[in-house]
C-alpha cells in the first residue's frame, strides 16, 4: 500500500497542465485521486509524475446558459448531487452522483476523473451517455469536443490522447415532459454498479413517448446504450407493458462475467434494473 516514487506538479492553468503532460510521457493527471491513488498504492500503476489539476479554476464550477448545462471536470459528486442546476437540467446525473461510494468518496471524486477513468462499473458514464453529453477536452494541439458515445472506447480506455485533459461536460437541459432515473444494483464488495441503469424518457403533448434512452454501467467493458430498447419505446404510451416488452428483448453484447456475477446473470439483471429505471423515469416525466 505504498506507491513508488513520483514527481508532483500543481499547475494553475489548463495550458500549463497540458504542457507538463506532453513533456512527461509517464505523467498522469490527478483529480480526486480516488481511483488513481488506490491503483498506485497497489503498484498497479507507477506514474513518474502526477499533474494535480485540482487547483485550476477553469475546471471548477457548474453553470447554466442558453438551455445547456456546463460542469467543470473537477466538480465533485457531492456538488453535482446537490446542485439545483443539475437537479433541474439533468436530474439523472445528480441521482447517479449521489449514489457513488460513500460520503468521503463523494467529497473528493470528480466527474472528470470518473469519466476519464472509464471504469465500466462506475456510475457516471451511463448517465453521461443517456444524456447525450458532450465532453470538452484540451491538449497541446488545442481544444475539441467529443460526444459521450464516442468517448468510451474500451475497458478503462477513452478517446483522450495522453496529453489531453477533459475540461468540462456539457449537457443539453432536459426538454419539457422529460423524466429520468438512475437505478443501481450495488456490488456488495466494491459498492460500484454490478448493474446501473440510466433512463431518460420524454413524453410529447399527447402523452406518447417522443424520445428515450436507456444506458447501462457495470454489465460490459464500457458503458453501453440499449438503443433498440429506446427506439422501440418511442411512439409507445410508456405503459408498464410497453416498457416491459421493450426491455424483454434487451441483449447486452459482450456482457461481463466475473467471479461475482456471470455474464448471463448480468443480462438478466440489466433487464430488471432497466425496467425499474424506465418506470421511475416515466413516473417523473
Amino acid at each position: 500500500m505504498y506507491p513508488s516514487k513520483f514527481d508532483y506538479h500543481r499547475p494553475s492553468s489548463v495550458q500549463e497542465a497540458v504542457q507538463i503532460l506532453s513533456s512527461n510521457p509517464d505523467a498522469k493527471v490527478l483529480a480526486g485521486g480516488h481511483s488513481l491513488i488506490p491503483v498506485m498504492k497497489l503498484r498497479l500503476a507507477a506514474p513518474a509524475a502526477l499533474v494535480d489539476i485540482g487547483r485550476i479554476d477553469a475546471l471548477q464550477g457548474i453553470s447554466r446558459s442558453n438551455g445547456s448545462l456546463s460542469i467543470g471536470a473537477c466538480v465533485t459528486y457531492n456538488e453535482i448531487a446537490n446542485s439545483a442546476d443539475v437537479q433541474a437540467a439533468a436530474p439523472v446525473l445528480a441521482e447517479a452522483a449521489g449514489q457513488i461510494g460513500d460520503r468521503q468518496v463523494r467529497y473528493r471524486g470528480t466527474i472528470g476523473g470518473n469519466l476519464s477513468h472509464a471504469d465500466p462499473a462506475s456510475d457516471l458514464p451511463a448517465a453521461a451517455l443517456a444524456l447525450g453529453a458532450t465532453l470538452h477536452v484540451t491538449g497541446t494541439g488545442g481544444s475539441r469536443s467529443v460526444s459521450a458515445s464516442d468517448f468510451f472506447v474500451d475497458l478503462m480506455m477513452t478517446a483522450l490522447q495522453p496529453d489531453e485533459i477533459l475540461t468540462s461536460v456539457e449537457i443539453e437541459a432536459a426538454a419539457a415532459g422529460t423524466g429520468s432515473a438512475y437505478v443501481k444494483f450495488e456490488h456488495p464488495a466494491s459498492g460500484y454498479a454490478l448493474c446501473g441503469a440510466a433512463a431518460v424518457v420524454t413524453r410529447g403533448a399527447g402523452g406518447s413517448c417522443t424520445a428515450a434512452s436507456l444506458c447501462f454501467n457495470g454489465v460490459s467493458s464500457t458503458a453501453v446504450s440499449a438503443s433498440d430498447v429506446a427506439s422501440s419505446l418511442v411512439g409507445s404510451d410508456l405503459s408498464d407493458d410497453a416498457i416491459v416488452s421493450a426491455v424483454s428483448g434487451l441483449s447486452i453484447p459482450d456482457a461481463t462475467g466475473d467471479m461475482f456475477a456471470s455474464a448471463g446473470y448480468r443480462q438478466e439483471l440489466a433487464k430488471s434494473i432497466g425496467i425499474q429505471a424506465l418506470l421511475a423515469a416515466r413516473d417523473r416525466a
Binding site: 497497489l42 456490488h187 456488495p188 464488495a189 466494491s190 459498492g191 460500484y192 467471479m259 461475482f260
Partner: peptide, 12 residues
C-alpha cells in the same frame, strides 16, 4: 482472486 476489498464483500 478475492484479494482486495473490492472483491471480498465485508458487510456494510
Amino acid at each position: 482472486l478475492s484479494g482486495t476489498m473490492l472483491d471480498y464483500a465485508v458487510p456494510k
